[in-house]
C-alpha cells in the first residue's frame, strides 16, 4: 500500500509539472496534439498506480517523451507555418460576408444548430446579423456581427464615456479582502459608509464590488437564499 501511495504522489506531481509546462490553456482550447498528449498522459499515469507489477519507468519514460515531444513540436510550429497547418489545421470560414458556406459546414461536420448555439454564445442571436463566422483551429467558433448590428462606440457618437477600470471584489461572503481594498485605492471608511447606505452590515454582504471610478455594487444575502443588489458610488479620500 505504501508503494501505491508513493507512486500516486510521484505521478501526481509529475503530471502537475507536465501540464504546467504544456501551458495554461483550458481543455476546450487545446490544440490537437495537446489533446492527444493529455489523453495519453492520463492513461499512462494510471498504469503503475493500478498495477504494482508495472515499474514506474513504464510511465515515466513515455510521459517525459510525450511532454518533450509536445513542447518541441509546439516550438517548431511557431517557426514553420507549413508544420502548423499540417498538425493544427487552418481556420475555416463558415459565414463569409453574410453568406453561409454549407460546404464548409459539411466538411467540418458542424450542424446548423451547433453553429447557431455557438453564435448565441458570441452574442449574435440571428444568423442574418453575422458577417463572418470562423471555425478556429482549437474548434471554437468566433463570430463578427454586421456593422449595422454593432453598437456604435461612444467616441463615434460624441458621448463622453468614463473609464471605469476593473471591478474588484472587496467583500466576499462578509469577509473584507484587504488586498483588493488596497488595490482599489478606497478606504475602509468609504466601504463602511456604502454598506451603511445600503442598510445592512458587513456580515450580511454576499458580494461587494467596486471599480476604479468608485461605482460599487453590494449584493445582500437574504433569507431563503435570494440576493438583492444595491448600487452607488464610493466617496474618494478618507483613510486609505
Amino acid at each position: 500500500m505504501v508503494t501505491v501511495f508513493l507512486r500516486t504522489v510521484f505521478i501526481f506531481f509529475l503530471l502537475i509539472v507536465s501540464m504546467r509546462i504544456m501551458g495554461k490553456r483550458q481543455v476546450g482550447e487545446l490544440q490537437i496534439s495537446e489533446l492527444v498528449v493529455t489523453f495519453m498522459l492520463s492513461e499512462l499515469a494510471v498504469l503503475p498506480i493500478a498495477d504494482r507489477a508495472v515499474p514506474v519507468s513504464h510511465a515515466l519514460v513515455p510521459i517525459l517523451t510525450l511532454l518533450s515531444a509536445e513542447v518541441i513540436l509546439s516550438f517548431l510550429e511557431t517557426k514553420s507555418n507549413k508544420l502548423k497547418k499540417l498538425l493544427g489545421g487552418e481556420p475555416a470560414t463558415l459565414i463569409r460576408k453574410g453568406r453561409l458556406d454549407a460546404g464548409e459546414l459539411a466538411r467540418h461536420r458542424i450542424e446548423l444548430e451547433e453553429l447557431l448555439a455557438e453564435m448565441r454564445l458570441c452574442g449574435v442571436f440571428d444568423i442574418a446579423d453575422a458577417e463572418y463566422a470562423i471555425l478556429e483551429e482549437n474548434g471554437r467558433i468566433s463570430v463578427k456581427p454586421k456593422a449595422s448590428k454593432v453598437p456604435a462606440p461612444a467616441e463615434d457618437t460624441g458621448i463622453a464615456a468614463e473609464e471605469r477600470g476593473v471591478a474588484r471584489a472587496l467583500i466576499v461572503d462578509g469577509e473584507l479582502n484587504e488586498k483588493t481594498l488596497r488595490a482599489s485605492g478606497f478606504g475602509k471608511d468609504a466601504i463602511g459608509d456604502a454598506i451603511a447606505e445600503s442598510g445592512t452590515v458587513q456580515k450580511a454582504v454576499f458580494l461587494m464590488t467596486a471599480d476604479d471610478a468608485g461605482n460599487y455594487s453590494i449584493y445582500i444575502k437574504e433569507e431563503g437564499g435570494s440576493v438583492s443588489p444595491f448600487s452607488g458610488r464610493l466617496k474618494k479620500g478618507g483613510d486609505k
Binding site: I21, S57, L64, L67, S68, V71, I72
Partner: peptide, 22 residues
C-alpha cells in the same frame, strides 16, 4: 526558447537512459 531547450534536453536524457537500460 528556454522551454524548447529544456524539452530537448529531457528528450535526449530519456533517450540516453532508455538506450543505457536496453
Amino acid at each position: 526558447m528556454k522551454a524548447f531547450i529544456a524539452s530537448l534536453a529531457v528528450l535526449l536524457a530519456v533517450a540516453a537512459a532508455v538506450t543505457v537500460s536496453a
